[in-house]
């Protein structure tokens, strides 16, 4: 692990908070609201009382609710948001992947703990979703790592001096974007928190619990978008502007696409999507990896 400057640690929370607010505001505007809505909603949830269901498992619910943003922030430490990552681990890609899997447990616990049938079904939906997207997601990550010959996020970013990985690994990039919305159970892959379950895994979360959970979901979306930049979009590389600004701009662009995907597609149910994930996405990502492997060996 390389030493990171102190300012990277200070800058990270600010960058994350800014992007989370931007994502929530964009979603509100797309849904016909105003850009200040996340502020109002945040205050509303802060002052809202908690309600409880009969015989809930409060400890597990809290663990689930808190683990969601925690996993996102821990995943963010390997992402060079301001040019340098807080912790540029030699196995950064694996660390990111591990933190993202923590989310499975978090969502399931939050859904299970309320002792509500809808929450429980929502939690299980996310576990099923994990089974569908995780393997293609891992292959997409590994493909980028293979292209750079390193699991260090910084080295992957700087291996794309000539050509962005998004250009010559389009399948891996597309699958990565899909798994980004899947891990944040957002939009087309938001069935675990779907409207047909009145909110699914989040159905019984009230007040600050709901605020932390929803903020955690936006954080996941932000971190997934930010990770796409070093993996596939050339990191902080770009003409004229300073590197940190390029990183922020690229992250913002990916984030906007992810947020907007909710407007574009209905929810994909796992009883259908699972088949496509295993019969189309996994072979496609494996093929992509083979191509990249051959090119790298050359």
């Amino acid at each position: 692990m390389r030493e990171s400057p102190v300012w990277a640690v200070v800058a990270l929370p600010f960058a994350l908070a800014l992007l989370v607010y931007a994502a929530a505001a964009l979603d509100a505007v797309l849904a016909g609201g105003g850009f200040r809505d996340p502020l109002y909603e945040g205050v509303r949830l802060l002052v809202q009382q908690r309600r409880r269901t009969l015989a809930p498992d409060r400890l597990l619910t809290r663990i689930g609710v808190v683990a969601l943003p925690l996993a996102a922030v821990l995943g963010a430490v390997v992402v060079p948001l301001g040019g340098r990552a807080v912790a540029d681990l030699t196995v950064g890609v694996v660390w990111f992947n591990a933190m993202e899997v923590v989310v499975w447990g978090a969502v399931w616990l939050a859904g299970w703990g309320a002792n509500s049938a809808y929450g429980l079904v929502g939690g299980y939906r996310f576990v099923a979703q994990g089974l569908a997207y995780e393997l293609p997601h891992m292959f997409a990550l590994i493909t980028a790592a293979l292209g750079a010959g390193s699991l260090r996020v910084d080295e992957i970013a700087h291996a794309q001096g000539g050509l962005w990985f998004a250009v010559w690994m389009p399948v891996a990039f597309a699958v990565y974007l899909l798994s980004a919305v899947a891990m944040a159970f957002w939009g087309p892959l938001g069935h675990p928190a779907g409207n047909d379950l009145a909110g699914g895994a989040a159905v019984e979360l009230t007040g600050p619990d709901r605020l932390v959970f929803l903020a955690g979901r936006y954080l996941l979306l932000v971190v997934a978008a930010a990770m796409a930049v070093p993996l596939f979009l050339g990191g902080d590389g770009g003409p004229l502007l300073p590197g940190w600004l390029w990183t922020l701009l690229k992250t913002g662009a990916v984030l906007a696409v992810l947020v907007w995907s909710r407007q574009w597609l209905p929810a994909l149910r796992m009883d259908r999507f699972m088949t496509a994930a295993w019969t189309v996405l996994i072979p496609a990502t494996l093929l992509q990896m083979l191509v990249v492997g051959i090119v790298v060996l050359d």
Binding site: T53, A55, N115, S116, A117, G119, L197, E204
Partner: peptide, 20 residues
Amino acid sequence: MGDEHGGMGNGQAGMGHGHG
């Protein structure tokens, strides 16, 4: 028991049955 309460579609449906 518990169904009536949850029955109103308020998401507490089937309380006490959640321990599948």
